[in-house]
Write a protein that binds this DNA or RNA. Sequence first.
DNA 1: TATAGCGTAACAGATAGTGTTACAGTCTAT
DNA 2: ATAGACTGTAACACTATCTGTTACGCTATA
Lengths: 145, 145
Amino acid sequence: MRQDGRLARMIHVLVHMGLLGGRETSERIAQMLNTNPVVVRRTMASLRQYGIVESEGGRGGGWSLTRPLTEITILDVQRALQGETILDAPLSNDHPSCPVERAANAKLQRAFQSAEQTLEREFQKVALAEIGEIAMASAKAGKTG
Amino acid sequence: MRQDGRLARMIHVLVHMGLLGGRETSERIAQMLNTNPVVVRRTMASLRQYGIVESEGGRGGGWSLTRPLTEITILDVQRALQGETILDAPLSNDHPSCPVERAANAKLQRAFQSAEQTLEREFQKVALAEIGEIAMASAKAGKTG
DNA sequence: TATAGCGTAACAGATAGTGTTACAGTCTAT
DNA sequence: ATAGACTGTAACACTATCTGTTACGCTATA
């Protein structure tokens, strides 16, 4: 399946927002992501719909978290961006009444469901606060720029 | 990640080939898949490279399995089509030196590696012969057309 | 009321699998 | 030998999805 780069980018942004603590404009977020403000608004709108961030228009407006990083998991961000399903089993649909195709699809679907459960469990284990702590620790240790 | 429909389609074809037992032309396989012979050759070429099928040119030529369905797993087909990696963790690469991006990527990578291991295990558990048996049983039971 | 912000539509670009045509190479039957 | 039935492969169009960009409307604040 083709991966969706928005998950990693949004996690990146949310952690920065949590560490900085204030409100960020689409313009500044776009700079963090090497992209442009419209793309940011488009993606952040999904997070807002899911209740992770809120936006305010007008002068002094921008985006802010609705709750601390300790209460946002990777799974929350994933759900906000892509809904319930993380992995889509790539089934075939060439001859829907063919028993071979059906049997093959059933096996594939089961395998992908297992993997999806694993991913879901892993995503839920990680709160964004943990990512922030790791980042701050490694920055303090001088491992990166 | 975007799914690759070739896995399901190739499993479908290989099981049919195993059940029929003989050699199949790209033309006939294309009919099974509602597609055309060039697409079939393109995809079957990956399976040949991996040793799952072999092809012979010339009159009377076509594609045949190199071993029975009991000795081909879904994982074999997956590896032939996409190489070692099943799931690609969708990491971000906007500011490679940013500790937050690095920490987020590390967490995502670990989660996807777990899911990949699950998928790999599930794929390896299923030999194509098993799919053939299920299909024949359900066809005999009159569950499908 | 000017300005700084978001909201959103519209369109171009990039990428990956798929569909199709065309033609070269190869094997077999005659 | 040669015709015919195959695969091998290049070339190009089509599609879908995410991304990038421009443009313009709405809103809140100084």
